[in-house]
C-alpha cells in the first residue's frame, strides 16, 4: 500500500457512523469487510432499498448513506 491508498478510499455513513472502504467496493464487499452475513440483513442506500440479489453488483460511492438492519426482539 502507498500514500495513494487512503486517497482511493471512500467515506460512507454506515448506520449513522463514518465508515471508510476502498474505492469501488460493492455492498457484498462491505458486508464481508464487517463480517456480516448478508442473508440476515436488509440494506438501504440513500433511502432506497437495495435488493439482496444486487449486493454483489452495487458499487458504493463517496458520501453514500447506508442503513443495514436486522430483526431484533420486539413487541
Amino acid at each position: 500500500m502507498n500514500d495513494t491508498a487512503i486517497l482511493e478510499q471512500i467515506l460512507l455513513t454506515l448506520n449513522g457512523e463514518p465508515f471508510r472502504i476502498h474505492h469501488g467496493a460493492t455492498i457484498a464487499e462491505l458486508c464481508a469487510a464487517i463480517d456480516l452475513n448478508p442473508k440476515k440483513v436488509a440494506v438501504e442506500r440513500n433511502l432506497e432499498i437495495v435488493p439482496r440479489s444486487t449486493f454483489a453488483d452495487m458499487k458504493l460511492a463517496d458520501g453514500d448513506s447506508l442503513e443495514i438492519v436486522h430483526f431484533v426482539g420486539g413487541g
Binding site: 454506515l14 440483513v41 442503513e67
Partner: peptide, 13 residues
C-alpha cells in the same frame, strides 16, 4: 412480533 433495528457494525457476530 419482531422489531427492525440497525446491525451493530462493531459486533456483527
Amino acid at each position: 412480533t419482531v422489531a427492525v433495528r440497525r446491525v451493530n457494525v462493531s459486533d456483527p457476530k
